[in-house]
Amino acid sequence: ILQTYRAIANYEKTSGSEMALSTGDVVEVVEKSESGWWFCQMKAKRGWIPASFLEPLDSPDETEDP
Protein backbone atom coordinates (compact mmCIF):
# COMPACT_ATOMS: atom_id res chain seq x y z
CA ILE A 1 0.00 0.00 0.00
CA LEU A 2 1.36 3.38 -0.98
CA GLN A 3 1.73 6.16 1.56
CA THR A 4 0.04 9.47 0.87
CA TYR A 5 1.89 12.72 1.56
CA ARG A 6 1.22 16.42 1.03
CA ALA A 7 3.67 18.97 -0.37
CA ILE A 8 4.55 21.67 2.18
CA ALA A 9 6.38 23.88 -0.32
CA ASN A 10 6.76 24.42 -4.05
CA TYR A 11 9.49 22.37 -5.72
CA GLU A 12 10.83 23.04 -9.20
CA LYS A 13 12.32 19.98 -10.84
CA THR A 14 15.91 20.26 -12.03
CA SER A 15 16.10 17.06 -14.09
CA GLY A 16 13.84 14.81 -16.12
CA SER A 17 13.71 12.19 -13.36
CA GLU A 18 12.26 14.64 -10.83
CA MET A 19 8.68 15.86 -10.38
CA ALA A 20 7.59 19.45 -9.76
CA LEU A 21 5.30 20.16 -6.81
CA SER A 22 3.03 22.95 -5.68
CA THR A 23 2.22 23.54 -2.02
CA GLY A 24 -0.74 21.37 -1.07
CA ASP A 25 -0.26 18.78 -3.81
CA VAL A 26 -1.07 15.26 -2.61
CA VAL A 27 1.27 12.51 -3.83
CA GLU A 28 1.64 8.78 -3.29
CA VAL A 29 5.12 7.64 -2.24
CA VAL A 30 6.21 4.64 -4.31
CA GLU A 31 9.78 4.28 -3.03
CA LYS A 32 11.86 5.89 -0.28
CA SER A 33 15.59 6.20 -0.89
CA GLU A 34 18.07 6.56 1.96
CA SER A 35 19.51 9.55 0.10
CA GLY A 36 16.48 11.61 1.19
CA TRP A 37 14.76 11.50 -2.21
CA TRP A 38 11.41 9.74 -2.61
CA PHE A 39 9.91 8.44 -5.84
CA CYS A 40 6.31 9.65 -5.96
CA GLN A 41 3.34 9.63 -8.28
CA MET A 42 0.50 12.11 -8.69
CA LYS A 43 -2.16 11.46 -11.33
CA ALA A 44 -0.17 10.71 -14.50
CA LYS A 45 3.10 12.22 -13.23
CA ARG A 46 5.93 10.32 -11.55
CA GLY A 47 9.35 11.37 -10.34
CA TRP A 48 11.79 11.93 -7.51
CA ILE A 49 11.08 14.57 -4.83
CA PRO A 50 13.18 15.62 -1.82
CA ALA A 51 11.49 14.10 1.24
CA SER A 52 11.90 17.40 3.12
CA PHE A 53 9.19 18.90 0.87
CA LEU A 54 6.60 16.35 2.06
CA GLU A 55 4.56 15.67 5.20
CA PRO A 56 2.21 12.76 5.96
CA LEU A 57 -1.31 13.53 4.83
CA ASP A 58 -2.74 12.49 8.21
CA SER A 59 -0.52 14.89 10.19
CA PRO A 60 -2.33 17.78 11.85
CA ASP A 61 -2.03 21.21 10.29
CA GLU A 62 -0.02 23.73 12.27
CA THR A 63 -3.12 25.93 12.56
CA GLU A 64 -4.92 23.19 14.52
CA ASP A 65 -2.56 23.34 17.51
CA PRO A 66 -4.43 24.11 20.75
Rank of each mutant, 00 (worst) to 15 (best):
Ser52Pro: 06
Leu2Met: 15
Val29Glu: 01
Asp58Thr: 11
Asn10Met: 05
Val27Phe: 01
Tyr11Phe: 14
Glu12Gly: 09
Ile49Trp: 00
Ser33Asp: 12
Glu64Lys: 14
Met19Ile: 07
Ser15Asn: 14
Thr14Phe: 07
Ser33Met: 10
Thr63Tyr: 11
Glu62Cys: 12
Ala44Lys: 13
Arg6Lys: 12
Trp48Ala: 00
Lys13Gly: 10
Gln3Tyr: 11
Lys32Gln: 07
Ile8Lys: 12
Gly47His: 02
Pro50Gly: 02
Ser17Leu: 09
Ser35Gly: 10
Arg46Asp: 05
Glu62Gly: 13
Phe53Tyr: 15
Cys40Val: 12
Phe53Arg: 07
Ser33Ala: 10
Asp65Phe: 10
Glu34Ala: 12
Glu64Asp: 14
Met19Pro: 02
Leu21Ser: 01
Thr4Glu: 10
Leu2Lys: 15
Leu21Thr: 03
Ala20Ile: 04
Glu28Ile: 05
Pro50Lys: 05
Gly24Tyr: 02
Pro66Thr: 10
Gly16Trp: 08
Glu62Leu: 12
Gly16Val: 14
Glu18Gly: 12
Pro66Tyr: 07
Asp58Arg: 10
Ala20Trp: 04
Ala44Ser: 14
Ser33Ile: 04
Glu55Pro: 00
Lys43Thr: 08
Gly47Pro: 01
Arg6Glu: 04
Lys45Glu: 14
Val27Met: 02
Asp65Cys: 12
Asp25His: 00
Glu12Trp: 06
Gln41Ser: 08
Pro56His: 06
Met42Asp: 10
Asp61Pro: 14
Asn10Pro: 11
Pro60Val: 13
Glu55Lys: 08
Glu12His: 11
Ser33Phe: 07
Asp65Val: 13
Gly16Gln: 15
Ile8Arg: 13
Ala51Pro: 05
Val30Arg: 08
Gly24Pro: 01
Thr4Ala: 07
Ser35Val: 05
Asn10Ile: 04
Leu2Trp: 11
Leu57Tyr: 15
Gly47Glu: 02
Ser35Lys: 07
Ala51Trp: 05
Pro50Leu: 03
Ala7Tyr: 03
Thr23Tyr: 11
Gly16Leu: 13
Tyr11Gly: 02
Gln3Asp: 13
Trp37Asn: 06
Gln41Tyr: 04
Pro56Glu: 10
Ser17Gln: 06
Glu55Asn: 04
Cys40Trp: 01
Ala51Tyr: 07
Thr63Trp: 09
Leu57Ala: 13
Tyr5Gln: 01
Asp25Ser: 03
Val27Glu: 01
Ser17Asn: 14
Glu62Lys: 14
Glu62Ile: 12
Glu28Leu: 05
Val29Lys: 00
Gln3Cys: 13
Asn10Gly: 06
Lys45Gly: 08
Gln3Arg: 13
Tyr11Val: 07
Ile49Gly: 01
Ala7Leu: 07
Trp48Asn: 03
Ser17Thr: 12
Gly47Leu: 02
Val27Asn: 00
Asp58Glu: 15
Gly24Asp: 05
Leu57Phe: 13
Pro66Met: 06
Lys45Met: 10
Val30His: 08
Asp61Leu: 13
Thr63Ile: 14
Gln41Leu: 05
Trp48Phe: 06
Pro60Gly: 14
Val30Phe: 05
Val29Phe: 02
Asp25Trp: 00
Pro66Phe: 08
Trp37Thr: 04
Gly24Ser: 02
Asn10Thr: 10
Ile1Arg: 08
Leu54Arg: 01
Trp37Arg: 09
Gly47Met: 04
Met42Gly: 12
Leu57Asp: 10
Cys40Arg: 02
Phe53Ser: 08
Gly36Cys: 03
Tyr11Ile: 11
Ala51Leu: 04
Ile8Phe: 03
Gly24Cys: 00
Asp61His: 14
Asp25Phe: 00
Ala51Glu: 09
Lys45Trp: 04
Lys43Ile: 05
Val29Met: 01
Gln41Thr: 10
Phe53His: 14
Lys32Leu: 02
Met19Phe: 04
Pro66Ala: 15
Ile1Tyr: 10
Glu18Thr: 09
Val26Met: 08
Lys13Ser: 09
Glu62Gln: 12
Tyr5Glu: 02
Gly36Ile: 02
Met19Lys: 00
Leu54Thr: 00
Ser22Ala: 03
Glu12Thr: 11
Leu21His: 00
Glu34Pro: 14
Ser17Pro: 06
Gly16Asp: 15
Val27His: 00
Trp37Val: 07
Trp37Cys: 03
Glu64Asn: 14
Ser15Gly: 07
Glu12Ile: 08
Glu31Ile: 08
Glu31Asn: 08
Thr4Arg: 14
Thr14Gly: 10
Ser15Glu: 11
Leu2Thr: 15
Thr63Glu: 14
Pro56Ser: 07
Ala20Cys: 08
Thr14Gln: 13
Lys13Arg: 09
Ser52Arg: 14
Leu2Phe: 15
Lys45Cys: 09
Ser35Met: 07
Gly16Lys: 12
Lys13Ala: 09
Ser17Ala: 12
Glu18Asn: 07
Gln41Trp: 02
Lys13Phe: 06
Met42Ile: 08
Ser22Thr: 06
Ala9Val: 06
Val26Lys: 08
Pro66Lys: 05
Arg46Glu: 11
Glu64Gln: 14
Glu34Cys: 09
Tyr11Leu: 09
Arg46Trp: 05
Gly16Met: 10
Thr63Val: 14
Pro50Gln: 04
Leu57Cys: 15
Glu64Ala: 14
Ser59Asp: 14
Met42Ala: 14
Gly47Ser: 02
Glu28Cys: 04
Leu54Met: 03
Glu64Leu: 11
Asp58His: 14
Leu54Asn: 01
Lys32Arg: 09
Leu21Cys: 05
Phe39Ser: 03
Phe53Val: 15
Glu31Met: 09
Val29Ala: 05
Met42Asn: 12
Thr23His: 09
Glu34Asp: 12
Cys40Tyr: 01
Ala9Tyr: 09
Leu54Ile: 05
Glu64Arg: 11
Phe39Ala: 02
Ser17Phe: 09
Ala9Asp: 14
Pro50Glu: 04
Glu28Ala: 05
